[in-house]
Lab assay of single mutants.
Amino acid sequence: HFTSQQLQELEATFQRNRYPDMSTREEIAVWTNLTEARVRVWFKNRRAKWR
């Protein structure tokens, strides 16, 4: 589960860029205190939901 702060950060990034690269995902991981893998999976799932 994600905190509302984490989701806000993830959503804001998603609005700007639906396909963040590795370095962007790592930055998000640092800001949100999540692993890069969790961030990558979140984006994958979010893109699926967005379609």
Score class of each variant (00 low, 15 high):
Glu9Tyr: 15
Val41Asp: 13
Arg16Phe: 08
Thr24Ala: 12
Glu9Gly: 08
Glu36Val: 05
Asn45Arg: 12
Arg47Met: 05
Val30Tyr: 13
Glu26Leu: 14
Trp42Phe: 03
Ser4Glu: 13
Asn45Leu: 13
Phe14His: 03
Phe2Gly: 02
Val39Ile: 08
Asp21Leu: 04
Ser4Trp: 14
Arg47Glu: 03
Arg47Lys: 03
Asp21His: 05
Arg18Tyr: 06
Gln8Leu: 12
Arg40Val: 04
Arg16Tyr: 09
Pro20Glu: 02
Thr13Leu: 15
Glu36Met: 05
Leu34Cys: 06
Ala37Leu: 14
Arg40Trp: 05
Ala12Gly: 06
Arg18Pro: 14
Arg51Glu: 10
Arg40Lys: 08
Ile28Trp: 02
Gln15Asn: 08
Trp31Thr: 14
Ile28Gly: 00
Val41Gly: 10
Gln15Gly: 07
Glu36Asp: 02
Arg46Phe: 02
Glu11Cys: 08
Thr24Ser: 09
Asn45Trp: 15
Glu36Trp: 03
Thr24Gly: 05
Ser4Asn: 11
Gln6Leu: 05
Thr24Met: 13
Met22Ser: 08
Met22Pro: 06
Thr3Pro: 02
Leu34Lys: 04
Thr24His: 07
Arg51His: 10
Arg18Cys: 11
Ser23His: 13
Ser4Thr: 13
Tyr19Gly: 01
Arg18Gln: 13
Glu11Gln: 03
Glu9Phe: 15
Gln6Ala: 06
Arg47Asn: 06
Arg16Ser: 09
Lys49Asp: 09
Ala37Thr: 09
Phe2Ile: 10
Phe43Met: 03
Arg16Cys: 14
Arg38Asp: 15
Arg40Ala: 08
Phe2Tyr: 12
Phe43Val: 01
Asn33His: 09
Arg40Ile: 04
Thr13Val: 15
Glu11Pro: 00
Thr3Trp: 05
Ser4Ile: 13
Asn17Leu: 07
Val41Phe: 12
Met22Ala: 10
Tyr19Ile: 04
Glu9Trp: 15
Leu34Ala: 07
His1Ile: 11
Val39Tyr: 02
Arg25Tyr: 08
Glu9Asn: 13
Thr3Gln: 03
Ser23Trp: 08
Asn45Tyr: 13
Phe2Glu: 03
Ala29Lys: 01
Arg18Gly: 04
Phe43Trp: 03
Glu27Arg: 13
Ala29Ser: 05
Val30Glu: 13
Tyr19Phe: 10
Asp21Ala: 06
Arg40Asp: 09
Val30Gly: 10
Phe43Ile: 01
Leu34Thr: 13
Ile28Lys: 01
Arg47Phe: 05
Met22His: 11
Thr13Asn: 14
Thr24Ile: 08
Thr32Asn: 07
Lys49Tyr: 09
Trp50Cys: 11
Trp31Leu: 15
Leu10Trp: 04
Lys49Met: 10
Glu26Lys: 14
Gln15Glu: 09
Ala48Tyr: 09
Ser23Cys: 12
Gln8Ala: 13
Arg40Glu: 07
Ile28Pro: 00
Trp42Leu: 02
His1Tyr: 12
Met22Val: 08
Leu7Trp: 11
Arg18His: 13
Gln8Met: 12
Phe43Asn: 00
Leu10Ser: 00
Val30His: 12
Trp31Ser: 15
Thr35Arg: 02
Glu26Tyr: 11
Asn17Thr: 08
Glu9Ala: 15
Val41Lys: 14
Arg51Pro: 06
Ala37Val: 12
Ala48Thr: 08
Phe2Thr: 02
Arg51Cys: 11
Leu7His: 07
Glu27Leu: 14
Ala29Tyr: 03
Asn33Tyr: 06
Leu10Ile: 02
Leu7Thr: 07
Gln6Arg: 03
Pro20Val: 02
Leu10Asp: 00
Glu11Leu: 05
Lys44Cys: 09
Arg46Val: 03
Asn33Val: 05
Trp31Asp: 09
Arg25Gln: 03
Glu26Ser: 10
Phe43Pro: 00
His1Arg: 12
Arg51Ala: 10
Glu11Arg: 03
Leu34Tyr: 01
Leu7Ile: 10
Asn33Ile: 04
Ala37Asp: 11
Glu27His: 09
Glu27Asp: 08
Val41Pro: 00
Thr32Gly: 04
Gln15Tyr: 07
Arg25Gly: 02
Arg16Asn: 09
Gln6Thr: 06
Arg40Asn: 09
Arg40Phe: 06
Arg46Pro: 01
Glu27Gly: 07
Glu11Phe: 04
Phe2His: 04
Gln6Met: 06
Glu9Pro: 02
Thr13Glu: 14
Lys44Ser: 09
Tyr19Ser: 05
Ala29Gln: 01
Phe2Pro: 05
Phe14Glu: 03
Arg47Trp: 04
Ala48Leu: 09
Ala29Asn: 01
Ala29Ile: 04
Ala48Phe: 07
Arg16Lys: 13
Thr13Cys: 15
Val41Ala: 14
Trp31Ile: 15
Gln8Phe: 11
Asn17Glu: 06
Thr35Asn: 06
Arg47Tyr: 04
Ala37His: 11
Thr13Phe: 15
Ala37Pro: 11
Leu10Cys: 03
Leu10Pro: 01
Arg16Gln: 10
Arg51Met: 10
Glu36Asn: 04
Glu36His: 04
Trp42Pro: 00
Glu27Lys: 13
Asn45Val: 11
Leu7Arg: 07
Ile28Asp: 00
Glu9Val: 15
Leu10Arg: 00
Gln8Cys: 14
Pro20Ala: 06
Val39Gln: 00
Glu11Lys: 03
Glu27Phe: 11
Asn33Ser: 08
Pro20Leu: 02
Pro20Trp: 04
Met22Cys: 09
Gln15Pro: 04
Glu9Thr: 15
Glu36Arg: 02
Leu34Arg: 01
Gln6Asp: 00
Glu26Phe: 10
Ala12Pro: 01
Thr24Phe: 08
Thr13Ser: 15
Ser4Asp: 11
Thr3Val: 03
Gln8Glu: 12
Asn33Pro: 01
Met22Leu: 14
Arg46Gln: 06
Thr3Arg: 04
Ile28Met: 03
Ile28His: 00
Arg51Thr: 07
Thr24Arg: 08
Glu26Ala: 11
Thr35Gly: 03
Arg18Val: 05
Glu26Gln: 14
Asn17Arg: 03
Ala48Gly: 06
Thr32Lys: 01
Ile28Asn: 01
His1Cys: 13
Glu11Val: 04
Arg47Pro: 01
Phe43Ala: 00
Met22Gln: 12
Trp31Cys: 07
Trp31Arg: 15
Lys49Arg: 12
Asn45Thr: 09
Met22Arg: 15
Gln5Leu: 11
Arg25His: 01
Trp42Tyr: 03
Gln8His: 11
Arg47Ile: 06
Phe43Glu: 00
Thr24Lys: 09
Phe2Asn: 02
Tyr19Cys: 13
Gln6Pro: 01
Trp42Thr: 00
Arg46Lys: 05
Ala12Asn: 11
Asn17Phe: 06
Asn45Gln: 13
Asp21Thr: 08
Val41Gln: 14
Trp31Tyr: 14
Arg40Met: 07
Arg38Cys: 15
Lys49Ser: 09
Ala29Phe: 02
Lys44Leu: 08
Trp42Ile: 00
Ala12Asp: 09
Arg47His: 03
Arg18Leu: 05
Phe43His: 00
Ser23Glu: 12
Phe2Ala: 03
Glu26His: 12
Met22Gly: 06
Leu10Thr: 00
Met22Thr: 08
Glu26Asp: 06
Phe2Asp: 02
Asn33Trp: 05
His1Lys: 12
Leu7Met: 08
Gln8Gly: 08
Thr3Asp: 06
Arg38Thr: 14
Thr32Tyr: 08
Glu9Ser: 12
Lys49Gly: 07
Ala29His: 01
Met22Tyr: 14
Arg40Cys: 06
Asp21Met: 05
Phe43Cys: 01
Asn33Glu: 08
Met22Lys: 15
Val41Ser: 12
